[in-house]
């Protein structure tokens, strides 16, 4: 995945069973963002792999003032890359469950 300067990681062990998982997002390199992020804390949230899209969450983060509107695509892409990796890993490790 391309280095967007925004890091997204699992905030819990993934056992492949739950559709909603906890993720943690923080800015590693503010210079890669167009706007100035509110603060460099780690933002933890729950994401439903089946019902939600990374764009929904990115927009909610912008609405909540964490990021500037001009960075919504970078934030969405960062979340999308991590979600894709989680789904790829689930397919490989727990093919039957999926």
């Amino acid at each position: 995945a391309e280095d967007t300067g925004v890091r997204v990681e699992l905030a819990e062990e993934d056992h492949g069973r739950k559709s909603s998982i906890a993720l943690r997002l923080w800015v590693e390199d503010p210079k890669k963002l167009k706007g100035k992020p509110k603060d460099n804390g780690a933002i933890e949230f729950t994401f439903d792999l089946e019902k939600e899209t990374p764009d929904d969450v990115a927009q909610e983060m912008v609405d909540s003032g964490f990021f500037h509107e001009s960075d919504v695509k970078i934030v969405a892409k960062s979340i999308r890359d991590r979600v894709a990796l989680i789904q790829w890993r689930r397919e490989r490790i727990w093919p039957m469950i999926q």
Partner: peptide, 27 residues
Amino acid sequence: SSFTQVVHSAGRRFIVSPVPESRLREQ
């Protein structure tokens, strides 16, 4: 505590905590 919580109007909770120093890329 150094955790703050923001709830978006759509209902999602965002919990903000300090990023561990070790995870911040050297600027």
